[in-house]
Amino acid sequence: MDISVATPKALPRSLFRSDATQRILAFAALIVLIVVFSLASPNFLQFNNIIGILLATAVNGVLALGVTFVIITGGIDLSIGTVMTFSAVMTGVFITFWQLPIPIGLIGGIATGAFAGFINGVVIAKMKIPPFIATLGMMYVAKGLSLVISNLKPIYFNDTPEFRQIVMGSALGSIFPQVQVLQIPNAVLFLFGAAFVASFILGRTILGRYTFALGSNEEATRLSGVNVARWKIAVYALGGTFAGLGGVMMASRLNSAQPALGQGYELDAIAAVVIGGTSLSGGEGTIMGTIIGAFVMSVLVNGLRILSVPQEWQTVVTGAIVILAVYLDILRRRKS
């Protein structure tokens, strides 16, 4: 009788109750989308198109990973898109303007994002400004700084052709030149690598544990003696780090830092997180869900484009999907 009787009961219930339902739904939706689009157009499952989808998912997916942490704490980060751009611009400054070695430029770019996230965290945790407002402010600050620093002009990486290869080259493809399936750009490896790291942090480390604890009951976490402010800052800094990685990837992919780009990316990232079953009220969420959510979005956009649906309508459909995903989440919650 040492082992509790509650175990067999708790298991099936948590299956229905946790974010697993939403994740399964999102995964099912992804499969349905893929089946429908591949039936509707022979071009959809073409290798090049699949590469296109993967590339499109890479940056949004990486941004969404960072946002997942923030949303699990019950917060929000609206600055992720322009912080991404700011990181890209700073990478351009380091590599093209200052002609620093590429690895240093990469680290500098990612550190820029982490620093912006750190500032978000300080403003939220120490100055007690609500995350929505704090990160809205950072969204403008990062946007403005990008424009000021770049003098409104794109920064190109023409002196360093290797830079573009970081994301667009294919490490796997060069090792196995004859296997066509492995000719995938490094961006995809970055996405899955980042997802693996994120999943590890969320599930196995102290930061991940406190991410959930903050979102579940912040006051209780505080009363348990956890330095809530410090961990909140860490979570936003982590979100910024992923935005920095996204910025570097974006710069590499475009072979340039485009200072006017970026606004709106945060909404795509948040949408991916929500579709993946992470609750906006905090306390639950998974990395797997976010990756699935990011793929749902890019498959949807890609498929609609292949079916020649005009871009404006693609946006409308995306919006409807987000609302549907949140509504399913609310329905699920109401039942339990």
Partner: peptide
């Protein structure tokens, strides 16, 4: 201290 209002994290 055990507080009057339960101070647990329901998701954990």
């Amino acid at each position: 201290m055990i507080h009057q209002e339960l101070n647990l994290m329901p998701h954990l």
